[in-house]
């Protein structure tokens, strides 16, 4: 980081936060503080929804994942547009007309108090588990690349987020999200332009795409029916749709974005904008990663992208040297084969292209094998078990090859992506804590001003909780990621109960409550006893909740029968 980089980073952060606070003046009632007085235009909600979903680790990991595994991860998002259409037709009008602060408040209107309590408890557990990781993960990556103490990064990022979220409520969160998303777009475009400009002069963008394709990095669509393959067209369309329905329809950190809309139409537009923009955006991020891969065909990358891990195995000379020698030879062979392929392509020589392509793929396999041996050496020398340097690839490229100012912009993107996610999380956790717990069960008839200050205090509490959780992250090690994984096991249950609420008129509170417990048991059984990809857990949980809910309603004469809200 040079002086210009620090200037760009500090300047963009100060501008974003100042603008957010300026736009949030007058957040002096609970309704304005938590729902922006229902005045938000569609474009602000749309960018806020997008910024909340795009966490720092998504941005850092996605480019690295494309470098290592190609672009097939984009299939994960194929179900998102379908989910947005379904939610626009169902959840948006129902939540708006129910005039609720939280999605779980609607569960009491439709079912009963115990179903609302269970729904809000599941959300608090699930989000509470993951909020620390949103702060911890980027701090660790920045610590590895720049040597910045992760505690300092955590404290600075956390303090900034708490400050503007506590002062300005959801208006500050939304308007800072808008600016943060614009910084992310700018950073992405700059990254793409820079990586193409940094390719050797005799390698065109078309050549680069052919080389990435030859190495399997442009395999975007897989029509395989393998249940254990995480990313296929089918797991994306079906599993991805259920995951998006759960996340955007039942998770208060997203629902609260579109509850602030000035009308049902504006809220629908915000979701449908995401339906149109999200898949191309992810494609673009992955494509940047694929181009970084091509860049490193002609510029030798380090054996491992995590500097500390590389130093650790370099210290073990006798075991490291043969791996490094094989790696260097494979790199040279691959570079030569790539140059030969470009020559043959220009001469329009199919035989030459086929020969050089075979050598290129062989060298790529040898290179991958040497990198795998390097990762194994890290583990054997007492380093991180399950070592993986995917998260460090893109930032390593940025810091080595981008000119002054651009590095600061990319780090601003990392900060923006992290802060936009954390602010939405602590804002929604505070909302559910006050509306669904405190105002419902503890203090039922206090003044609006009392609940406004309670909301501010709850925001401070959840912000400090996230910072503490992230601060202990290093001691927890890989446990913190396991905890985040556990958080994702609750989504299917929440989706199931909202499907019952919206579509199954004869199911009452008892059916919904028992269905939720059965759905959660089914998800935990799938997690503990099968190898099914996690994308299918939501489908399993949702189906079990609906089936058990209907069964209880069918066999129980005492089921409360309230009509489902009409659209």
């Amino acid at each position: 980081m040079r002086a210009l980089d620090w200037l760009v980073l500090a300047g963009s952060l100060v501008f974003i936060i100042a603008y957010g606070l300026y736009r949030s003046r007058g957040s002096n009632t609970v309704n304005r503080y938590l729902l922006a007085g229902k005045t938000m235009p569609w474009y602000a909600m749309a960018l806020s929804i997008m910024a909340t979903q795009a966490s720092a680790i998504t941005f850092i990991s996605t480019t690295g994942q494309s470098y290592v595994d190609g672009m097939r991860f984009v299939q994960f998002y194929f179900g998102l547009p379908l989910a947005m259409v379904i939610l626009s037709a169902t959840a948006v009008p129902i939540f708006h007309r129910a005039n609720v602060y939280t999605a779980y408040e609607y569960l009491e209107q439709r079912f009963d108090a115990k179903t609302r309590a269970l729904g809000s408890l599941i959300f608090l557990l699930q989000r509470g588990f993951s909020v620390g990781l949103s702060l911890y993960a980027p701090a660790i990556v920045l610590a590895v690349i720049f040597g910045w103490p992760d505690q300092w990064t955590t404290v600075i990022m956390g303090t900034l987020v708490i400050t503007y979220t506590v002062i300005g409520g959801i208006q500050a969160v939304t308007w800072t999200d808008v600016q943060q998303m614009l910084v992310i777009f700018l950073g992405l475009i700059v990254s793409m332009i820079m990586v193409v400009l940094l390719l050797p002069a005799d390698v065109s963008l078309l050549d680069a795409m052919h080389l990435a394709g030859a190495a399997g990095r442009l395999n975007v669509v897989s029509t395989s029916f393998d249940w254990n393959d995480r990313y296929t067209l089918w797991s994306g369309l079906i599993g991805g749709m259920f995951l998006a329905l759960s996340y955007f329809g039942c998770d208060q950190s997203q629902v609260q974005r579109y509850l602030t809309g000035r009308s049902i139409a504006q809220s629908k537009l915000s979701l449908l904008f995401n339906a149109m923009a999200k898949v191309p955006m992810q494609f673009f991020i992955l494509f940047v990663g694929a181009m970084v891969f091509v860049f490193y065909i002609f510029e030798k990358p380090p054996l491992l992208f995590a500097p500390a891990a590389l130093s650790r195995i370099e210290a073990d000379g006798p075991r490291h040297r043969p791996v490094e020698t094989r790696y260097s030879a494979a790199f040279e062979n691959r570079r030569q084969a790539a140059s030969d392929w470009i020559d043959a392509h220009r001469r329009d020589s199919p035989d030459g292209q086929a020969r050089s392509l075979a050598r290129f793929r062989q060298a790529q396999q040898e290179l991958d094998a040497a990198r795998a041996d390097g990762a194994r050496l890290v583990q054997e020398s007492g380093g991180e078990q399950g070592f993986n340097d995917t998260n460090y690839i893109f930032l390593s490229f940025v810091t080595r090859y981008l000119p002054a100012g651009f590095v600061g912009l990319i780090i601003a993107v990392i900060f923006a992506a992290a802060m936009s996610t954390i602010s939405a999380e602590i804002n929604s956790l505070a909302t559910v804590s006050i509306i669904d717990v405190y105002r419902r069960h503890v203090r039922k008839d206090a003044s609006d001003r009392h609940y406004l200050w309670a909301s501010r205090l709850a925001t401070v509490f959840w912000g400090l909780y996230a910072m503490s959780f992230a601060g202990y992250g290093r001691k927890l090690g890989s446990l913190i990621e396991a905890v985040n994984m556990l958080g994702s096991l609750f989504y299917g249950t929440l989706l199931g109960v909202f499907v019952l609420a919206f579509f199954m008129r004869r199911v009452g509170g008892n059916g919904a409550f028992v269905g939720m417990l059965a759905g959660e048991a089914a998800i935990l059984a799938a997690f503990l006893f099968t190898g099914i990809s996690f994308l299918w857990y939501n489908v399993i949980g949702c189906v079990v909740v609906v089936a058990v809910g209907l069964a209880v309603a069918f066999f129980s004469d005492g089921a409360k029968r309230r009509p489902a809200a009409s659209q």
Binding site: P81, L82, V85, A89, A214, L218, V221, L233, M276, P280
Partner: peptide, 28 residues
Amino acid sequence: WRRVYFAVIFYLGVLIVLFYLFMKAFSS
């Protein structure tokens, strides 16, 4: 909103087909 919803689903279908053609064009 029916037409808007169908347009979004049609758009997704077009995107998937374009991605497939993109993959085939460059996986020489």
